[in-house]
Design a protein around this nucleic acid. Structure first.
Lengths: 257, 257
DNA sequence: CGAATCATGATTAATTTTGAGCAATTCAGA
DNA sequence: TCTGAATTGCTCAAAATTAATCATGATTCG
């Protein structure tokens, strides 16, 4: 008998989701004729590939292809929770280095919503969009350099130079992916170099990366696990959590809902 | 049967609020068919994501991002003409230093509308908003420094240092006011100092300032008239034009339609 | 052929969501 | 300012959902 292969089943899930927008796990289980465990595993892999968004009770398509802009809002919601959790690491009066990138940007937006804390900070960044968000909220320092197109991030020799001239209490860093054996990586070499330099100047470094970053090997490693003090994520798979905690990294997740 | 997911309920709340502006918690509870406790919890998470504002008895949509767009809309019409005229001074392949401030920002927007020219340029700036506008349009260099609150502008010793390390073909500079006898002025001393430093590194400097700037005495002078090569304005009163041309400054105005 | 790997299903423990009850707070009218 | 009603925040327990572990059969590879 030629039972449907796993890939076919995945495709079927995508089709069902495309038709219905979002579905409960139980509904999918019934439709596919497999066990709930398998359905959930399938949803895991689809989420790893960035094709869907899992939530308690079911899943929805990740791309906003069907004109449902709420998918973007869902994705945004997760990032917001992540950002909010990251705020918990910040103490009043600190000098915080905020990375560039969409994750850092959502942290900046979260900061703007808590002006009591933000006013007491000094924030340093090389992200144009981050600076834009935080303008006027607190003492703000922007590293100079060449703008690297898609990420709104300032890099280059000048940026490295500047970064090395100061010290930071806390570095909130993002990444492209997390290599289970080598640590967080970035697809751009120059940015990775810059992150490494900032880590060297920081008392404490916290990695902010959602669970989809775990697994796929990246290009340039910019930190060993033991250089991190915290990992802020939406969700920590068991193996990931173990890898981090084995190096003494504290794992933080959104608590309330 | 496919019961709606929690996230879908959140989206529904947003849709309802978008239609009605604000709603009582009891009305929402009834509309959603869940308990009051759940409704209140949902409102909590939406507020934590910064999407709504909760108040006693109900909730409303959070005002979206107005600080940004208000400023941009200000003086839009005239500034656009001014910016378009300024583009006439730029030659393909040049390295252009673009000032910070609302005037420079509208020049950046004009540049974005003429990608054929912009692609050939290298732009340097210390304006966060300018960089934000031009991101991805051309090689872009941003000077590092401390953000000076309201103007999105990067200043300070690092900025001065960096500025002095390079040379620019054309400096498009704005100002707070033009003192008829002493030249263009800025209300902020540090910014004035920076402008002066950029002028020293530039082959050609063009002042962009609408006619309302003419007359009122300002605070810190950053250039003498004879250091300018061009004045781009919406309208040049006779005495102003005379003052500029007496020092060999060319005056540019938008051509009347 | 045998060992190792993988996908799957079942079981159990942990987590999340939800609704209800109760005290504290806020609001509106006298 | 006082009072009563409405609203909110909180804790707790029940139900649903998910994660982790293990056993089983299929498949792959040496």
């Amino acid at each position: 008998m030629n039972a449907p292969l796993a890939e076919d089943r995945l495709q079927r899930i995508l089709n069902l989701l495309a038709r219905h927008g979002s579905l409960r796990t139980t509904a999918l289980t019934e439709a596919l004729g497999v066990s709930g465990a398998t359905t959930r595993r399938d949803l895991d892999t689809l989420e790893r590939r960035g094709l869907i968004r899992k939530m308690h009770g079911g899943a929805a398509l990740a791309s906003q292809d069907q004109g449902y802009q709420d998918r973007a809002a869902l994705h945004q919601g997760r990032k917001t929770d992540l950002a909010q959790t990251a705020l918990g690491l910040i103490r009043p009066g600190q000098t915080v280095y905020l990375d560039a990138g969409t994750t850092a940007r959502s942290v900046a937006q979260a900061l703007r919503r808590t002006p009591e804390l933000t006013r007491t900070l000094r924030v340093v960044t090389h992200g144009i969009d981050v600076a834009y968000e935080l303008n006027g909220e607190c003492p703000l320092y922007v590293v100079g350099g060449e703008v690297y197109g898609s990420t709104f991030s300032l890099t280059g020799p000048d940026a490295l130079d500047t970064v090395r001239r100061y010290r930071y209490d806390l570095f909130l860093v993002g990444c492209t992916s997390i290599d289970p054996t080598r640590g967080p990586t970035n697809s751009n070499l120059i940015e990775a170099q810059q992150k490494a330099a900032i880590i060297a100047q920081s008392t404490r470094t916290a990695l902010i990366a959602d669970s989809s970053k775990w697994g796929p090997p990246g290009f340039a490693t910019f930190a060993r696990f033991d250089q991190l003090r915290d990992w802020v994520t939406d969700h920590a798979p068991a193996d990931a959590r173990a890898a981090f905690e084995a190096h003494g990294v504290q794992v933080h997740q959104p608590q309330l809902r």
